[in-house]
Design a protein around this nucleic acid. Structure first.
Lengths: 207, 207
DNA sequence: GAAGGTTGTGGCACTGGGTGCCGAATTTCT
DNA sequence: AGAAATTCGGCACCCAGTGCCACAACCTTC
């Protein structure tokens, strides 16, 4: 790609390499049983260097998630003003969460690790925070209030909560595409879980 | 009260005493700047003893929250079957979250600390988890599906998310009672944020 | 009132995440 | 060759959390 000769000592590893090593060790040994030292050693680098690439041991699971946030913002800005607020949110969130088939197994792996380990959800919140803020911002402009008001905040939080539930089920079941679960959860949220019953099947609305 | 002579060495402190000392130090110095050693010393006890009363430094902020969960469960069991699901959840959650006026300042303080410090949300999740499970359990029985299905999970998560949003706004603003915020957020959730607009005022439905 | 069980505590040593600092290694530019 | 830039490694350090054991203080029992 870009073979621009940079100056200075070339990196002995990469964030991606550490990520792969970490994921492998986490699945093999378990998250708690894997030390940062282990990960660094697997990538042929020192413990100190790991922390130059990631702020924390947990952060290694959140590769390029933050990039998705800007994508989310762009999608919100592009949505037509005549689409109802909750439907707009539903469309945007579902639309943004399309992954290439090749990335799916790894993504699923990450989600399972996060879902399994409660302590990891902590780091998750830090990353979700920016995501949540975008939703709040959109809702706030639609409602004509500040983004830190109750309703925008509640909308952002509940949207994230519904999306996380969909993610989690998808990671566990592996019997349908992520968008189907996402759409089902967000559609249910948009009508206050009123039309949800045991007779309904997921994705019924998306047909 | 109960002057029953217990045997063995009497405790040199109490969970409550450590809690008060911790809260004071957290507000004075900040959470990160306060070490467990500081808290223990303030209570006239050793660092090791602190960890006999609390599992972690963060846990000190969650005094008797877990007791509320059993209260929540009881309330769900007591709700009449003809009340619609989301209305039932709304009533139960609002009903359980009544605090004595004397406890309010401290509760507000705790919420601000938790809201301010993202790292504390980790411990929060651990406690919310049980809370969330009760909601999921209730929704699952109403829907006639397992509690780990998508909809019960989504309902539990979104309910918690809405409640947290209400808690947070209440902790910051201090201009209304908690139940008012809670009711507003849960009512909005129950109708999919459809009737929310800038002309509406919080608590309009509760009149 | 001495002995023995019970309960809480303190100290010690250890693991592991995370940080600040500095010198060394390696490459390119002048 | 030398300077500037960039990354790395190692060391020292702080702090959260845990396992272990001895000791302290209280009670009951004989």
């Amino acid at each position: 790609m870009d073979e621009v000769p940079r100056r200075g000592r070339p990196p002995g590893t990469s964030g991606r390499e550490l990520e792969v090593a970490a994921l492998r060790l986490f699945t093999d040994l378990g998250y708690d049983e894997t030390t940062v030292e282990d990960i660094a050693a697997a990538a042929g680098v020192s413990r100190r260097t790991f922390f130059r690439y990631f702020d924390s041991k947990a952060a290694v699971l959140w590769g390029d998630f933050d990039a998705e946030v800007t994508e989310l913002r762009a999608a919100f800005d592009a949505i037509a003003p005549d689409v109802a607020m909750m439907q707009a949110i539903r469309q945007v969130v579902v639309g943004v969460n399309h992954y290439r088939a090749a990335d799916v197994p790894e993504l699923r792996l990450r989600m399972s690790l996060i879902a399994a380990h409660p302590g990891l959800a902590a780091e998750a919140l830090r990353h979700y925070d920016a995501w949540e803020r975008e939703v709040a911002r959109f809702a706030a402009t639609r409602l004509g209030v500040a983004a830190d008001e109750l309703y925008p905040l509640a909308i952002a939080r509940t949207t994230l909560a519904a999306a996380r539930a969909a993610f989690e089920r998808w990671a566990v079941l592996a019997d349908a595409d992520l968008p189907v679960y996402l759409d089902a959860a967000l559609a249910a949220l948009a009508d206050g879980f009123a039309n949800v019953s045991e007779t309904e099947r997921y994705g019924a609305r998306s047909r």
